[in-house]
Write a protein that binds this DNA or RNA. Structure first.
Length: 463
RNA sequence: GGCGGCGUGGCCGAGCGGUUAGGCAGGGGCCUGCAAAGCCCCGUAGUCCGGUUCGACUCCGGACGCCGCCUCCA
């Protein structure tokens, strides 16, 4: 049984499905006004792993994640760069999908764009105004949080204590500092949509509630995002759903953030590294492995040291794939356990990995077991037990693929010159001409190849 | 001030009331002509102070330290 920590109840509990065998999940996506950073990489990887694992375990998953393409930050960026808002969105949405593709995050089943749902948002806000749940001020329409009895459910504290902690509010027209903008009236030179209550643009919290309920329907199963979205974003989405009279997400999942030194990586602190930059100097799979090696609810340290650490681990996995000539699985497609049957040691491995991941996505434990199995597979092969070894190695590849990590055992393209050197070295070795063999090896190393000998002769590969 | 989380060996990072986490780095060994890759062995950690217990890294209490949310943020 799949179990997952639920933020509302503060405990790991069964992940139920509204409809048996089908899981509906919504993950809050990015606002496209800048390059994605490592934090975006982490949350997308975490929930991509979750999605893939649920699919592996036999669920039919409908995964929805939005693109926020209207927002104050986008307007500010457009004005700064002197280009239309739509161009800012197009540029950074493109960068987003490139990065997602690079880190192997599968495309959501649906990618709603906020601007395509403005009519629905306007209708919802009108109904809130009619019922007195929302009220206008000089700059927009606000939601009256006092109208939702259990406001603060996700924050884990009652309205009063939230209000007590609220920082000084610039807008004294708001009835409560916690009231949030459903709609912002446009200023000069700002994009707007027409509305009876005043032209303008929707607030962020309204976008997600309309899109998630619109695509997944009442009482969908799982709503995810970073911990920092818990409050106020998710709280406010939920408040609107309550006021709307529609059952909302049944289970809430939140992931931990990326730390830089002792601080959270964030836009406001400016201490972020863009995912795009990192991918230029790192195998994207190393970042996935790094993410998998800590629990999704814990903060992760991303530094040159931890990335290098993951890269070396990855190198061992790839070496296994080369040794057993394992096929590359996953990537754009999903792996399901129904497509694989294991027995013996491979079955034991699959079982313990499943137990780990079924229990609140304990990927670090699963990875530990897989690395243990990696040593076992090599040891079996070293002692000549080829078929046993192969069975374990294949299971390792399948189980990593179930978490979206593709092992790369492909051989590199070897040019004619290098191929000739390999032949020369094999000749020298069989002649026991060690000086010549070493000279040829040095030459290969100089050309950037890693040289490995085996009983069947010299093999070379790129580092 | 309110709420939540964390403190594990050189580094990263899990589970568990008593039996090995795992990875990286380091040391020793096997294999190898020498390497590389691979395998085996090794350090035997748990912020501090109390308590519960036959026994605590694991439960309870306290102290200290750190991080986060309460404002846009994944």
């Amino acid at each position: 049984m799949l179990r997952l920590f639920d933020t509302v109840h503060g405990e790991v509990r069964a992940l139920r499905q509204r409809e048996e065998g089908r899981l509906t999940m919504y993950v809050c996506g990015p606002t496209v006004y800048d390059l994605p950073h490592l934090g975006h990489g982490r949350f997308t990887l975490v929930w991509d792993v979750a999605r893939r694992w649920f699919v592996y375990r036999g669920l039919q998953v409908r995964f929805v994640s939005n693109i926020t393409d209207i927002d104050d930050n986008i307007i500010a960026r457009a004005q700064r760069d002197g280009v239309p808002e739509a161009e800012v969105c197009a540029t950074y949405e493109d960068a987003w999908w490139r990065a997602m593709s690079a880190i192997g995050v599968a495309r959501p089943d649906d990618v709603p764009h906020a601007t395509a749902y403005v009519d629905e948002m306007v209708a919802l806000i009108s109904s809130f105004l009619e019922r007195g749940v929302a009220y206008p001020t000089s700059d927009g329409i606000y939601f009256d949080v006092s109208r939702v009895a259990d406001y603060g459910l996700l924050a884990g504290q009652p309205l009063d204590s939230l209000r007590a902690g609220a920082r000084v509010e610039a807008n004294d027209e708001k009835r409560s500092p916690l009231d949030f903008a459903l709609w912002k009236f446009n200023k000069v030179n700002e994009p707007f949509w027409p509305a009876a209550f005043g032209d303008g643009r929707p607030g962020w919290h309204t976008e997600c509630v309309v899109m998630s309920l619109g695509l997944l329907g009442d009482g969908f199963d799982l709503h995810c995002g970073g911990f920092d979205l818990k409050f106020p974003h998710h709280e406010n989405e939920r408040a609107q759903a309550v006021a709307w009279g529609r059952p909302f997400a049944q289970h809430w999942g939140h992931n931990g953030w990326v730390m830089v030194g002792e601080q959270k990586m964030s836009k406001s602190l400016g201490n972020f590294t863009s995912l795009t930059d990192m991918l230029e100097r790192t195998d994207a799979r190393a970042y996935r492995l790094l993410v998998l090696r800590s629990h999704y609810r814990s903060p992760i340290e991303v530094s040159p040291t931890t990335i290098a650490d993951a890269e070396r681990g990855l190198a061992r996995l790839d070496a296994l794939a080369r040794r057993f000539d394992l096929p590359a699985l996953a990537g754009d497609s999903f792996v399901t356990q129904a497509d694989h049957s294991f027995s013996g040691a491979a079955l034991e491995l699959a079982t313990s990995v499943s137990l780990a991941l079924d229990d609140d996505l304990n990927a670090p434990l699963a990875v530990a077991e897989l690395f243990e199995a990696l040593s076992r597979a090599n040891a079996l092969a070293d002692s000549g037990e080829e078929s046993e070894a192969r069975a374990v190695a294949e299971a390792i590849a399948v189980l990593f693929a179930a978490m979206g990590l593709v092992l790369d055992g492909a051989s590199d393209d070897i040019d004619a010159a290098a191929a000739a050197l390999v032949i020369a070295r094999d000749q020298a070795r069989s002649d026991k001409n060690w000086a010549e063999a070493d000279r040829v090896r040095d030459e290969l190393l100089t050309l950037g190849w890693v040289v490995e000998d085996s009983s069947s002769g010299t093999t070379i590969r790129r580092p």
